[in-house]
Amino acid sequence: MTAGEQLRAEKKAWRLVQLLVGLVGYGTALTFLVGSSLGASSWSVLAEGLSLRTGMSFGWATNLTAVVVLLCWIPLRELPGLGTFLNVVLVGTSADLAALFVPPPTSLVQQIGYLLLGLLMLTFSDAVYLGARFGSGPRDGLMTGAVRLSGGKPIWLVRTAIELVVLTAGWLLGGTVGLGTLLIALLMGPLVQQFLRVTTVRLAADG
């Protein structure tokens, strides 16, 4: 749906609440993943690296990255929705707020716990906000736009290329790459797909 169609579609109140819960949960999940020190997603590795190099908070680095990626939508001719803009604002902000309440892990067991909890929260929250059907986040739009401009290259190939470039940049900046990075790369897609089956809001236009 276009941005206008998203706003005109039914169940707006429920969908808006679901969108906000998903985005806040997503940002909170990033705090657990980064806090585990066992590796996070490629984009979080980049944000962590930027945070270390610039002195800005992880959340602000996440928001800044999202803004830059969103600007890349212009030549890609991607159309943002309400969820796109709220993603830019809320994910990083929620990560910073969660960091005020989530204590650093004190043992390997707790690190693993943070990693697993963060992974489940990340995938479920991603499905929750996408299921609200207010548009994709900046990073997902970058992928779909790149797929279209690539002349129909497979989604997995384009997504993998983007993730590798982002991960390498983050690692060179000092971001943490580890077991969590591998787990997220392997499980993110399948888990989000499963969760979307129960989080996607059904609309009359679906038939």
Results as ranks from 00 to 15, higher is better:
5 E>D: 14
6 Q>D: 04
7 L>N: 12
15 R>W: 07
16 L>C: 07
17 V>T: 09
17 V>S: 11
17 V>W: 06
18 Q>W: 00
20 L>E: 08
20 L>G: 03
21 V>S: 09
22 G>Y: 06
22 G>T: 01
23 L>W: 09
24 V>H: 01
25 G>D: 07
33 L>H: 03
37 S>R: 15
39 G>D: 02
40 A>R: 09
42 S>D: 09
44 S>Y: 02
44 S>F: 01
47 A>H: 04
47 A>T: 13
48 E>W: 06
50 L>N: 12
50 L>D: 07
50 L>E: 05
53 R>Q: 13
53 R>A: 10
55 G>K: 07
55 G>H: 10
56 M>P: 00
57 S>M: 03
58 F>C: 08
59 G>W: 08
60 W>C: 01
61 A>S: 14
61 A>L: 13
62 T>W: 01
62 T>L: 13
63 N>L: 02
67 V>L: 15
68 V>N: 11
69 V>Y: 12
69 V>L: 15
71 L>R: 03
73 W>Q: 02
75 P>K: 04
81 G>Q: 09
82 L>T: 09
82 L>Q: 11
83 G>V: 11
86 L>C: 04
88 V>K: 04
89 V>R: 03
95 A>N: 13
98 A>H: 07
101 F>R: 14
104 P>G: 09
108 L>P: 04
112 I>W: 08
112 I>G: 11
113 G>L: 00
114 Y>M: 06
115 L>T: 03
117 L>Q: 00
118 G>K: 01
119 L>H: 12
121 M>K: 00
122 L>Q: 04
122 L>P: 01
122 L>D: 09
124 F>N: 15
125 S>Q: 05
128 V>C: 08
130 L>N: 03
133 R>Q: 14
134 F>W: 05
135 G>Q: 10
138 P>I: 08
142 L>T: 01
145 G>K: 05
145 G>H: 09
148 R>I: 06
149 L>P: 00
150 S>W: 11
150 S>T: 12
152 G>I: 02
155 I>Q: 06
155 I>Y: 07
157 L>R: 05
158 V>Y: 11
159 R>L: 07
160 T>P: 00
165 V>E: 05
167 L>R: 00
169 A>Q: 03
170 G>Y: 00
179 L>Y: 08
181 T>Q: 01
181 T>F: 04
181 T>K: 04
181 T>P: 10
186 L>I: 11
186 L>D: 07
189 G>E: 13
190 P>Y: 03
191 L>K: 05
193 Q>G: 10
194 Q>H: 09
194 Q>T: 11
196 L>F: 11
199 T>I: 08
203 L>A: 00
206 D>R: 10
